[in-house]
């Protein structure tokens, strides 16, 4: 059995690939920022909120972590449409990704928050810091610093998982690949190229998050502790 690879057949489509990559990058970047904010707020709620808030967050987190992302994407895309609100596929994709990664982030950050010793909070309280100031200065930074490697992995996964939104025809990299392979009948080559592009994107995301960590966690940088 011989198969003749013909990557040249894909060359005319480089603009399509580029557009797909760009949308994947946008989807991931926006979902990363919003998902992180959502997840951190939920983590605070779950660690330190009232009983009602704790329950609400727990239900949200468990519902998301125990259902497939694809189903979540469909529920949000078709659900919003059923409610009579028109959102673009891209917008629905962002919402689904934010809701999804927010739940995972919540659990990671909560672990970080719980690792901050009670005596630290007591010391801040005794210095007169308000609850908000204590969270901001004394709890969150060390907490996130501690779980940063896990957060990094989670956001690389998010970028890769954004490929699922091709199913609601958000025009990101995988959706573009689907179209190109049906045009060219070069499925194998198309997905090899797509795979390599994702690999490069993952590398870029990791480097970005690493640089971000270096910029934010000054102590790690100064003391030379790896992140």
């Amino acid at each position: 059995m011989t198969y003749h690879f013909d990557f040249a057949a894909l060359l005319p489509y480089w603009r399509e690939f580029a557009r797909g990559i760009w949308l994947t990058v946008q989807l991931s970047a926006v979902s990363t920022v919003l998902g992180f904010v959502l997840g951190t707020l939920c983590a605070i709620g779950r660690a330190d909120g009232s009983r009602g808030v704790k329950w609400l967050v727990a239900i949200y987190v468990e519902a998301i972590r125990n259902t497939p992302l694809l189903v979540q994407v469909f529920i949000i895309y078709f659900g919003i449409a059923t409610l009579g609100v028109h959102v673009s596929a891209n917008m629905a994709a962002v919402i689904a990704l934010v809701v999804n990664v927010g739940a995972y982030t919540c659990e990671i950050v909560r672990a970080g928050i719980e690792s901050v010793h009670k005596s630290q909070i007591e010391a801040a309280d005794c210095l007169g810091l308000s609850r908000f100031q204590t969270y901001w200065h004394v709890v969150l930074r060390p907490a996130i610093e501690r779980v940063y490697p896990a957060i990094t992995s989670q956001y690389v996964l998010l970028m890769l998982a954004s490929s699922i939104t091709s199913q609601i025809s958000a025009e990101e990299l995988t959706a573009v690949a689907n179209r190109i392979q049906s045009d060219t009948f070069r499925a194998f080559e198309t997905y090899i190229v797509t795979g390599v592009l994702y690999l490069l994107l993952s590398f870029v995301v990791r480097v970005c998050l690493w640089l971000f960590g270096l910029a934010v966690f000054v102590r790690r940088r100064k003391l030379g502790t790896a992140i």
Partner: peptide, 30 residues
């Protein structure tokens, strides 16, 4: 807590802040 200072057995310094930042935190934010 503005009138009373306390020092603990386990120091309870904030590990992610420098010595100077540890001291500056409360005067600046409170």
């Amino acid at each position: 807590h503005l009138d009373v200072g306390i020092v603990f057995q386990s120091y309870n310094l904030f590990p992610h802040l420098t010595v100077e930042q540890n001291i500056m935190l409360a005067p600046v934010s409170v």
